[in-house]
Design a protein around this nucleic acid. Structure first.
Lengths: 340, 340
DNA sequence: TTAATAATTGACAGCGCTGTCATTTTTTTA
DNA sequence: TAAAAAAATGACAGCGCTGTCAATTATTAA
């Protein structure tokens, strides 16, 4: 019932090998022949069988998305972006949730790659930020594309799609400064995440650009969780605290910001009148807090599609060398920030 | 490098066909032979090649999860549950987001199933609740397992995993009644979703059981969105409203509840002192609202794993007829409900 | 124009597995 | 104990495709 390469060959009056050449976009097929084949492909609505391709060829038509990230919205966006690129190029997507903290993560992934004959991997933080992990993979000749925080790729290991958190954080902080804030606190995400580091840099840079003295006591460690937002904000705003009480809090992501909002509520601090709070990521729930969060929006699905396209062209050896594309999240002003 | 069936056969001193029999759990292999083969499989860490299996056999080792649901947390939980069952049985998971409203959805899915040689599908609402869609699929001999709301399967089309929203809703409503509430409003999800209907039934049943008069004006149409929670609660609590002002609101899911919380805030109604609000689903953000939501918890990942196992045993023709398993979400009491 | 070279095309094996069917071994029956 | 029946095993083709290499055709140089 489903057309095979044989049917197409017969219909086009050529050998199956020629059909194979056409569908794989190989050179050395005469234009006329190519068109004959393409016509037959369309008439029969032929689509190559992935299993057969994977089995016969040295190539693979599967890419995998390996993730370890508690943020469901992020993952779903990524997946859909990747899927969209895959569909376009006749690739298949395998998803593989895992635990980055696991010592055997490298082994686990290597095993999976070997077993399932994966053409390449897409990695997002924190996995994309584990140099040893990536290096091992690359040395095993696995194509990898990483989505990372920063403006330039940290190495030549693999192509990257960079998200410029630094500039975005600077813009966000500037927004607070423009509102008249001077005592701006910073609640960090996991310290080892590049995004935390980059956002911190942007924050510092904005302060510096406006000649605002940096107060170390306004920087609180956190871990990208709601709870760390709660405790961070409590610590910052408690009356016994020796710090200058900040008038604004830069939260490393929306969850932290939601936590800070929660803490403010607990302490009877009204937002944004008495305290401005910003988030980062523009996850759907940043619109569902009270008040709605000012945050930075990143086009995740677009970023993922970009990464997948990069990966696929790598796999096809369309050597576009180490390509890098960069995105800068955009400020979204909502109701959690106000004049000082 | 990777062991193939040939390596195993050689190692075990049998033919590849016998190895095939063992790994497929077929009968008519002597116990002794079976053990020899199993030993070799372990020694070589052999794992059958999916592509080869798919290509050679009539069977397929891929299942697909087709979804159309804006709730990222739900999808991720589902995926992970399905993935876990797949891993256990050597199946592969394909994910396929789609739009249930699309007229060609059936064609799209049928096409995908045919093309990718899918062994079976897992469907969640709203797709699982489209009888014509399911029927078409089943008639094309595609195995389907549905996750649905209700206590018994609506038909014999396919196995189902049922989530008893009705009983859960009754329990939740009873919780409100126990707190002394009598004027309990209901903000519905999408009217055509079974879950809305079932939750509504549970709500009505609880009222009836406690001899509380049902007030139609306390039932508001909604659509499972934050915004419908906002407008629903506004409508219920506005002073011009002719209704009895409710003292509690049953929201059909956590998003609606978050919306109701938001509206209450807007209207200066304090929760839970002046108004109790309950959600449904226990999504992560129900812990991140102020106050934290009382809600009903459903073990989504477990449900999904169950569904996937059901599907896989169907595919393997281990005819456990039309099996149904049922889950009842459990009440989780947090801070958004209080005595009247 | 012809030989040499380059560009196109095809024949065929084989990827790792399962299905079919024939063969061998074991068990049962007479 | 032999013959018949049943159970266990294996030989081999072939799933749909790609890689290799040989054969053919078109193009260029001499």
């Amino acid at each position: 019932m489903k057309a095979t390469i044989n049917d197409v060959a017969k219909q086009a009056g050529v050998s199956i090998k020629t059909v194979s050449r056409v569908i794989n976009n190989e050179t050395s097929v005469r234009q006329l022949t190519r068109e004959k084949v393409q016509l037959a492909v369309e008439e029969l609505n032929y689509q190559p069988n992935l299993s057969a391709r994977n089995l016969a060829g040295a190539k693979s038509f599967s890419v995998a998305y390996i993730y370890d990230n508690p943020n469901a919205y992020y993952i779903i966006d990524m997946q859909e972006g990747i899927l969209s690129a895959c569909k376009q190029h006749g690739f298949e997507l395998l998803i593989h949730p895992c635990d980055a903290k696991n010592k055997n993560i490298t082994e686990e992934v290597v095993n999976m790659v070997k077993h399932a004959r994966i053409a390449g991997l897409i990695l997002t933080p924190p996995l994309s930020e584990m140099p040893e992990f990536v290096k091992t993979l690359v040395e095993l000749d696995v194509k990898v594309v990483r989505i990372m925080s920063g403006d330039v790729a940290p190495d030549e290991l693999s192509p990257c799609v960079m998200v410029n958190d630094r500039d975005a954080a600077q813009t966000i902080t500037q927004h607070l400064i423009d509102l008249g804030h001077k005592d701006i606190a910073f609640i960090a995400g996991d310290a080892e995440h590049m995004s935390t580091i980059e956002r911190y840099k942007g924050y510092r840079r904005a302060l510096k650009a406006s000649n605002i003295d940096f107060d170390k006591s306004l920087v609180i460690e956190g871990d990208y969780s709601f709870d760390s937002g709660v405790s961070g904000a409590k610590q910052l705003m408690s009356s016994e605290s020796k710090n200058t009480r900040p008038t604004a809090i830069f939260s490393c992501n929306d969850e932290i910001a939601a936590g800070a909002l929660f803490a403010a509520r607990l302490m009877n601090i009204s937002i944004p009148e008495q305290l401005s709070i910003v988030g980062f990521e523009n996850s759907p729930f940043s619109r569902q807090t009270w008040p709605k969060l000012t945050t930075a929006d990143q086009p995740n699905s677009q970023i993922a599609e970009d990464a997948a396209n990069l990966l696929i062209s790598q796999v096809r050896k369309q050597k576009n060398k180490i390509t890098i594309s960069q995105y800068v999240p955009k400020l979204v002003i909502r109701d959690s920030t106000a004049k000082c």
